[in-house]
Design a protein around this nucleic acid. Structure first.
Lengths: 143, 143
DNA sequence: TTCTGTGCAAATGATTTGCAGCCAG
DNA sequence: CTGGCTGCAAATCATTTGCACAGAA
């Protein structure tokens, strides 16, 4: 698997777009931070390294990273889009506590396989999926 | 299972809230329309029956219906929250074509069961879940 | 040189909220 | 009566866009 920098660069060339210091920096910070990141949060981190960078550039770059397949997007239910790297971390789903907001990353191979089958049964080929499980964690349940 | 009107009424009483003609009408239209409905769309339908009703009231009532457990909320990825009745229709997940936007409702009992187990393994008790499968439908794939 | 990228501020679109009067309990 | 409700318009919040200038290729 090629590294994200290379993938991004190839994506830019393929679409006649340009590599810039801003895009390079945003990608670097994005890859280093991991956790489901809102544009706003990424913007704050990027600004620490280069205060001249604009909010809009972060939004625009995040969209590019998503189109390039480098960032996956998540909608947890507040009105904010969150992103996280798709390379360097394996796919996972989310188990969310409705009381305390705890957000656990989970994977279940059997479910993944059944999702494929379910899609195939309807003539679909899957490109991705999102699964959000909402409930109460043990602490919140006993408290 | 009690009917939605009763559930709503009990919810209102329990929270010292009041039943009003607006809320009654909004609930009625909501239940009759089914399909994943944005507040905006519901507002338009409600207005046909009572043009004096305000947009904000629809937003406020939809939130009440959600809190009362009568409406489930869905986030498909455009910035709009959609609702649909949780009573009178069985739970389902979504298979979405990324090209043509086709949105098929699906259920897989085996997956449902595995979700419960997965949650239990992490000490959670589930209250609900959302699963969105993204891909290409057969038509879009061959076109 | 030629476009594409950038920062800024203004624009957008969905949803929320303040307020003065209305009305259910 | 009283405190919750309503419509309206203004306010928010996340995100997008127009624009003039800057800077990759």
């Amino acid at each position: 698997m090629k590294d994200p920098q290379t993938i991004f660069h190839e994506y830019l060339v393929r679409n006649k777009l340009k590599m810039t210091p801003q895009r390079r920096l945003i990608l670097e910070v994005f890859l280093a931070s991991g956790e489901h990141l809102a544009s706003e949060e990424l913007y704050r981190q990027v600004r620490d390294r280069d205060p001249s960078i604009g909010q809009a550039t972060v939004y625009r770059t995040l969209k590019l990273l998503h189109d390039a397949g480098i960032a996956g997007s998540y909608h947890f239910g507040d009105g904010v889009v969150r992103y996280e790297p798709r390379y360097g971390q394996q796919h996972h789903d989310h188990l969310i506590c409705e009381r305390c907001g705890k957000n656990i990353e989970v994977v279940d191979e059997k479910i993944e396989r059944l999702q494929e089958e379910l899609a195939k049964r309807h003539g679909f080929v899957l490109t991705g999926h999102r699964m959000y499980l909402y409930g109460l964690c043990s602490e919140c349940r006993t408290a």
